[in-house]
Nucleic acid binder design. Structure first.
Lengths: 207, 207
DNA sequence: CGACTATACGGAGACTGTCTCCGGTTAGAC
DNA sequence: GTCTAACCGGAGACAGTCTCCGTATAGTCG
């Protein structure tokens, strides 16, 4: 019983999969920091003060930096379930029987939405995309893979132009997300831009 | 004669059009700062230390901030002839008799090139695009106008899809410039993305 | 339960960059 | 030559990042 509850506790805690368990107080602080970070990122964007996060979490700066040596490490941890959401969205689109045009519209919109979790996130993702040394790089790979999967499913239906490369499309859509973010456009304002991209990658006669 | 040479001097100096002339030493310092800024921006990107610019220019920090109260004011001044270049490129494309596809390819490439003067410039431009309070806003307007002009000339040839809005296209291409910048892509690597945008705005049967 | 140690805490402070303020200097007019 | 408005420069206040180390405590073991 007590063993069982210990397992539960560990499952609830936001801790990366295969790492040795933290001491109880450390785990507690880690969670408090993550909660605070989520709040502050949302309010002030990715460039906010890390000390403010520490203060809001009620821990010292040292504690924050021990858990998350760089800003990107913290961002990475904050996005713990982000990658899952991406994959779910991807799967939903692939499994659906929507015509290519509708499916891609859906996917692109989800993409932009997902990439714009907080101010500056899109730019952050963009620069981590080709930088394996960034902690966020892995997250980007999930995005790359998901996007490739969706495009492949559309290609299988013969709706995609021949010379379209998934990576380029991803860059392009990330760019759209980034403009939308830095111009403070409402998420749905990205629609017209995504429509252009869509026409650019679909065969002219595609449905 | 001496009056003439005084005029020459003022013409050579990098000074905004309709402002009362600076004192000789002030003008000298302003130029030194601008030279230093151009160099440092190119080397370190738009986020470089302004104090470093002051040091490299051989002036005090106070002098720099008096001439250019904010980073954006400095950036704006550094781009003094940038707007001219844009307009020249625009005119060249409009005047040429290139078929729409070629003309736009040319224009888009110039666009990305122009927007990426130094690291972070594209992002800077993007966020100033919809922010009239930014000193760079005016510069963006030039870009907006030039882009609209090119698109109109193509539209006049009946090559553009009906629902294409110049503003959206500009945002999109700025996005491409921004990805290219933050992924450290070589300028020509933007080609494939621009090709997609191109297909997205041209009528399927356009030449 | 008490003692022991590996682990974690937290905040003082070094460092870097931004921006202001004001005593001192100087260009340019008369 | 004199006078003053315009300008200079750098000290220093302030904010954010990140480290170091004395102190505290969770978890273990007898």
């Amino acid at each position: 019983m007590s063993a069982q509850s210990a397992v539960d506790k560990q499952t609830n805690a936001e801790q990366s999969a295969a790492e040795k368990p933290l001491r109880a107080d450390a785990q507690r602080n880690r969670d408090k920091i993550l909660d605070a970070a989520r709040a502050v990122f949302r309010e002030r964007g990715a460039a906010c003060s890390l000390d403010e996060i520490a203060k809001r979490a009620g821990v010292g700066a040292g504690t924050l930096y021990r858990h998350f040596p760089t800003r990107d490490d913290l961002i990475d941890a904050v996005m713990r379930n982000w990658a899952d959401r991406i994959e779910a969205d991807c799967q939903a689109v692939v499994d659906s029987d929507l015509p290519p045009r509708t499916a891609l519209t859906e996917w692109f919109n989800r993409f932009v939405e997902n990439v714009g979790i907080y101010q500056g996130a899109a730019a952050k993702l963009m620069s981590a995309m080709d930088d394996p040394s960034s902690p966020i790089y892995r997250k980007c790979q999930v995005l790359v893979a998901a996007n490739a999967k969706v495009l492949d499913s559309v290609r299988a239906k013969g709706a995609l132009r021949d010379d379209v490369d998934a990576r380029e499309v991803m860059r392009l859509v990330s760019g759209v997300a980034s403009v939308a973010d830095s111009s403070r456009l409402a998420p749905d304002q990205a629609g017209p831009m995504l429509a252009i991209v869509l026409e650019g990658i679909l065969k002219p006669d595609a449905s």
